[in-house]
Amino acid sequence: MIELAIGIILAGCAIGAGLALIAGIGPGIGEGNAVAKACEAIGRQPESRGSVTSTMIMGCAIAETTGLYGLVIGILLIFVAPNLLINAFKNGLLWAKENGFI
């Protein structure tokens, strides 16, 4: 029974990490589009290159954060969350046994 519960916890963490990493797709596409359009803007108005580059760098930094959030959550779900959740589950089980719930 405990093995099954641990298996469900691990599977949940793996599925959650996979879902969190979907967030990494959007920024890649968005950044590419933004840079392509900014390059065209530079092509049209070469004199505005400095300001367009600065704005583009800041825009890319902001766009990238979404991917970073997803990646950090995914990494935490894979490496940190399973141990925490399994320990919490075992402690909960112990507490339930001690108090006569099981």
Binding site: G32, V35, A36, K37, C39, E40, G43, C60, E64
Partner: peptide
């Protein structure tokens, strides 16, 4: 998009990955 802009887009996506 112009070929240069398309190249920039691909480069940015590759860099992100």
């Amino acid at each position: 998009l112009s070929p240069q802009a398309k190249q920039a887009k691909k480069r940015m996506q590759l860099s992100y990955m």
